[in-house]
């Protein structure tokens, strides 16, 4: 049982232990989808949504697996259920909100293989969060991911007009930027209480 307070969980995942910048989760979409602010925002919203869904799923699965005493199936069940949930979400959105689907749709299959999703499920189990804590944790993680993505997109749009040396262009300069950002985020240490 974990007794961490909800604001503390939120602040910690949002900025102090940011999923992307200090936990290295979801680096692939972070590098891939951070070149434009619009797409970055959409991706962030989509990931936050899926994080919430899979957090709830993982919470349920964990209870069931503990009940039947098969902890060794945790990983398989998590990944399977997350994939299924993403698929389901995709279908539901497609049916009920085509506009939202157009905005988020293309990101959804990509999100299944985003390690932030599985990482969240594993960490929340490890930390023994209760249901509400899980939701706040997912919200903070999603918010942190979105924040990092949007800040990065802002700077990359600015960089498009810079004279970056050709050997540093592309992923390399993005990683360097992420490094400086990660350095800056270290200033938040200890704020989560």
């Amino acid at each position: 049982m974990n007794t961490e307070s909800l604001p503390s969980i939120f602040i910690n995942t949002l900025i102090v232990n940011n999923f992307v910048l200090s936990m290295f989760l979801g680096i692939c979409p972070f590098l891939g989808v951070s070149s434009k602010k619009e797409t970055a925002t959409r991706m962030g919203v989509a990931v936050t949504f899926v994080l919430l869904v899979s957090s709830v799923c993982a919470y349920g699965i964990n209870i069931v697996l503990n009940y039947i005493g098969a902890p060794y199936l945790t990983l398989i069940c998590y990944i399977a259920v997350i994939a299924a949930a993403v698929q389901l979400v995709e279908m539901v959105i497609k049916k009920y909100s085509p506009a939202l689907f157009r905005a988020l749709g293309i990101f959804l299959p990509l999100i299944t293989t985003n390690c932030a999703i599985l990482g969240l499920a594993l960490f929340q189990t490890q930390k023994g969060y209760n249901f509400v804590q899980c939701l706040v944790y997912a919200l903070g993680a999603g918010g942190g991911f979105t924040l990092a993505l949007i800040i990065m997109a802002g700077m990359r749009e600015k960089l498009e007009l810079a004279d970056v040396p050709d050997i540093a262009q592309g992923a390399a300069i993005t990683l360097i930027l992420a490094g400086i950002l990660s350095l800056a985020f270290m200033g938040f240490a200890g704020l989560g209480g």
Partner: peptide, 13 residues
């Protein structure tokens, strides 16, 4: 990046 996996996941959808 995830392009490969994405390409792989698309037909499955």
């Amino acid at each position: 990046m995830t392009t490969q996996a994405q390409a792989a996941a698309a037909p499955a959808a």
